[in-house]
Design a binder for these strands. Sequence first.
DNA 1: CTGAAAGCGCTTACAG
DNA 2: CTGAAAGCGCTTACAG
Lengths: 328, 328
Amino acid sequence: MKAAVTAKDVARLAGVSQSSVSRVFFDGAKVSEKTRNKVMAAAEELGYRPNEFARSLITNRTRIIGLVMKGVQNPFYPQVLKQFTTAFKKWGYSVLFVHTNHDEIETDDVEMLLNYNVAGVVITDAELSLQVAEEFRVNQIPVVFFNRKLDTDEFYSVCCNNFEASRKVAEYLIDKGAEDMVYIAGNANTSTSRERQKGFFEVLDKRNVDYRKYASDYTYEGGYKTAVQIVEGKQLPDAFFVANDIMALGVLDALAKHGVAVPAETKVVGFDNIEMAGWSSYGLTTWEQPIEKMVAETVGYLLKEIEAYTGLAQAVEVDGSLVERRTT
Amino acid sequence: MKAAVTAKDVARLAGVSQSSVSRVFFDGAKVSEKTRNKVMAAAEELGYRPNEFARSLITNRTRIIGLVMKGVQNPFYPQVLKQFTTAFKKWGYSVLFVHTNHDEIETDDVEMLLNYNVAGVVITDAELSLQVAEEFRVNQIPVVFFNRKLDTDEFYSVCCNNFEASRKVAEYLIDKGAEDMVYIAGNANTSTSRERQKGFFEVLDKRNVDYRKYASDYTYEGGYKTAVQIVEGKQLPDAFFVANDIMALGVLDALAKHGVAVPAETKVVGFDNIEMAGWSSYGLTTWEQPIEKMVAETVGYLLKEIEAYTGLAQAVEVDGSLVERRTT
DNA sequence: CTGAAAGCGCTTACAG
DNA sequence: CTGAAAGCGCTTACAG
């Protein structure tokens, strides 16, 4: 890095004080039109840009949001990342990206976020270790769990209304005539899989519809293997409700491989509505997660908390909608 | 944000000077074991962590790398993002993520990177506007174009050896008996598509094999539509070489839809080896891009340039390898 | 090896 | 509205 142009340089050229230069570049400060023009001209000429580090040091606030992601394999997340980056940028915030391999985030993973004193944090698809949670709280850094519903009332969380969505999927499949269903679960330690299961089973129980549950892991391979196991086993169900799309695609491939006709012999519904669900070879009926709304909720909360920290914890749920395609 | 613990607080508790605290936390400075222990104990007790902003301000260096991405839709890129984040973290660098929608990056997109005086920049899948390029050069910020080969000798670029790879694909398909081939190109303004085309055609020309070229756009839909057009047209080629996997999957789906047997009636080869290429329903033969090696090259260069800026520009190409599956 | 002091580039009371 | 000055939390010559 080279010696950069500073406010002092601009001040000298513009014939004003360094304070005035600062005021021109700091939103909300008062400067006369004349001073502003002189400063802007000088700044333009020298290629001045305010040093964010000096700024953050003195204001004790940063304009950086930490975004922690785990499952970048699932095409759902790139979409989420893109939308977060775009939304935060609109508000002048940058995104410091952190990738973690752990289900539970260690201090190690987020050390940088703490060192950079990020203004807020978004955590997708992972839990916080108690120690890390404490660090954020002590520093009054607001945190949102995205695509998670927390049992604790210690942090804010935003997700799709998985429970209600799954009830509607159940009713939809019953209306389609299904009398024997299978639920393929995602990782058992995720709220998404648990909530989807709860809503689905509740309706089936009430309506006296038979069902079986298979445990899987939110991956294509997991969905594929589970479906093979089912197809090769005793009885083909009338319908599969699969806890996410990527698994559902694995299920569809396994069914195709075994010559099972969809939707004639059995039906399949996924969850997420990732881009591939709409691909010609799949045409997967699925529940669309309203990513845009979920992102807007998250960003809105963080900005408010950054403005004035309250530590408000709440589980926000956003509605999605069924996208009907060719697998039902 | 709360008033944080500073080096001064630690110094007071440890009974040493603030300078000594600083020395303990600054790699390379000399401190006695006794002082170090006292400081570490006090720091631990208070939960001290050095303020990165003050640090950067005084050292005039940051430990932030800007990562600019365009096509997050293509599953190739999440993979890349993950590997970069992991690699940089190992060296103590954080990743500031920027998403751009433009083929040519505007100042607007990277303004934050300049404001934060990032130590280096990685740009995937996009070009730099002249103005932005100039800003980076003036500030002596090293830049790498990832998955791009530049004609200019102004910036460093790292990509797969697309030319050689495509020559090998051509020879492989000829060996398989193909006598009439189709190349489906990606976006024409990308070096990847051009180089892949050049290598492929060169061999076919030399070996007197017939071929046709179709323009497409590196998307699933694009590949699908192009294949439909070909299948519905005059003559089915013996083989398709498709400029990336995601298009190739579209091609496979279109062929399946039209009842064309692969590899019996025609063969298909993609490029990238994204995860889905290995999925059961596809089993796509493809050229694997050595992401890990490409990332290592990029990171290595950036670290060296950060250490001592030379402005070295060079087009580095890394070899990949053919992954044979069921479509050939 | 250690401490007192200067200074990185800003923001922001405080006078005028 | 504007300028001189203090200070944010660090690193780093400079003495001792």
